[in-house]
């Protein structure tokens, strides 16, 4: 397979490496960079488990994105949500409201939430549910995830918290 030297900016840090051009962003993150916080759930964009944030606002399934396509973009994974040990309000809301059970969908759910709130800081319940569509959770019935997204939006609103991942959104 043809390879290309690329630089991926993940959670504010540049990583330069040689990637086969067919390498997905998910494979690059997990296998090349050993950043295993982003999860494989289906590899075909059906479950949203591998969702990351591009440039602080756009959600993509990293399994459907080629690593070479991600060059020049700011990629935020769930591992980039915490700053100096301080949790992001989305993470706090997910923890406190019981939106996490097995936790396997959680990295994708949190990044999806970041995308939803970047686009619409004050979503209604219906907008939250529509926004989360495409991210599958088999543990919670979505009930507490929906509540957590709502709580996160309130926390970010009132606390004037920093933007997701600190990117230039």
């Amino acid at each position: 397979m043809k390879t290309k030297m690329i630089t991926l900016c993940v959670n504010g840090k540049d990583h330069r490496f040689e990637a086969p051009v067919n390498r997905t962003l998910l494979q690059a993150l997990r296998d090349d960079l050993k950043l295993t916080d982003t999860k494989y759930g289906c590899g075909t964009g059906e479950c949203g488990g591998c969702t990351v944030l591009m440039d602080g606002k756009d959600n993509v399934c990293s399994c459907l994105t080629l690593a070479v396509e991600a060059e020049g973009r700011h990629i935020t994974t769930v591992g980039g949500m915490t700053r100096e040990g301080e949790l992001h309000p989305i993470q706090i809301a997910f923890i406190e409201l019981g939106a996490i059970q097995c936790g396997y969908c959680t990295p994708g759910m949190i990044m999806k939430t970041a995308g939803i709130l970047a686009d619409n800081p004050n979503p209604t319940e219906e907008e939250i549910r529509k926004g989360l569509d495409g991210n599958i959770c088999r543990c919670t019935g979505y009930e507490k995830i929906v509540l957590a997204v709502r709580r996160a939006s309130e926390m970010m609103d009132t606390a004037q918290t920093r933007k997701v991942g600190g990117m230039s959104a």
Binding site: T77, V78, G79, L87, I100, G103, P107
Partner: peptide, 8 residues
């Protein structure tokens, strides 16, 4: 939950 929310 904290480990899971941070991807760790």
């Amino acid at each position: 939950a904290r480990e899971k929310a941070t991807g760790q």
